[in-house]
Simulated scan of single mutants.
Amino acid sequence: MTAEAVAAPAVRPVRPRGPGRHALALLAPGIVALLLTYAMPLVWVLRMSLNESGEGGLIRQTVSFATFAEVLSSAHWWNVIGQTVELGVLVTVCTLVVSYPLALFLARTTSRWRGLLVALAVTPLLISSVARTFGWMAILGNQGLVNKTLGELGIISEPLQLANNLTGVVIASTEIYMPFAILAMISGFGRLDPELEHAAASLGAPRRTVFRRVVLPLTLPGVLTAALMVFVLSLSGYVTPRLIGGGRVFVLATEIYDQATTALDWPVAAVLSVLLLALFGVVIAVYLRAQKVLEARFTGPQGARS
Rank of each mutant, 00 (worst) to 15 (best):
V6K: 12
P9E: 13
A10N: 09
V14G: 02
R17P: 00
P19M: 10
G20Y: 09
A23D: 08
A23H: 08
L24P: 03
A25K: 02
A25L: 13
L27V: 11
L27N: 05
P29L: 09
P29K: 09
V32E: 07
L34D: 01
L36P: 01
R47P: 00
S53H: 06
G54R: 10
G54V: 13
R60N: 04
R60P: 00
Q61F: 13
F68H: 14
S73D: 15
I81T: 06
G82K: 02
Q83D: 07
T84M: 10
L87R: 08
G88A: 13
L90N: 02
L90R: 08
T95G: 05
V98W: 01
S99A: 15
Y100V: 02
F105E: 09
L106F: 03
T110Q: 15
S111V: 01
L116M: 13
A119D: 04
A119I: 08
V122Q: 09
T123Q: 07
P124V: 05
I127A: 13
G135C: 05
A138I: 09
G141Q: 07
N142T: 08
Q143D: 15
L145F: 11
N147K: 01
E152I: 01
L153K: 07
I155S: 13
L160D: 07
A163E: 11
A163D: 07
N164A: 06
N165P: 02
I171N: 04
F180R: 04
R191V: 02
L196Q: 15
S202R: 01
L203G: 10
V210E: 12
F211I: 02
R213S: 14
V215P: 05
P217R: 13
L218A: 13
L218G: 13
T219F: 04
G222T: 03
L224S: 12
A227I: 04
F231H: 05
T240Y: 03
R248G: 06
V249R: 00
A263E: 12
V268C: 00
A270N: 01
V271I: 05
S273K: 06
S273V: 06
V274N: 10
L276T: 14
L277A: 14
A278S: 13
F280R: 02
V286W: 04
Y287F: 15
R289Q: 03
R289G: 10
A290G: 15
L294R: 12
G300M: 05
G303C: 11
R305V: 12
S306D: 08
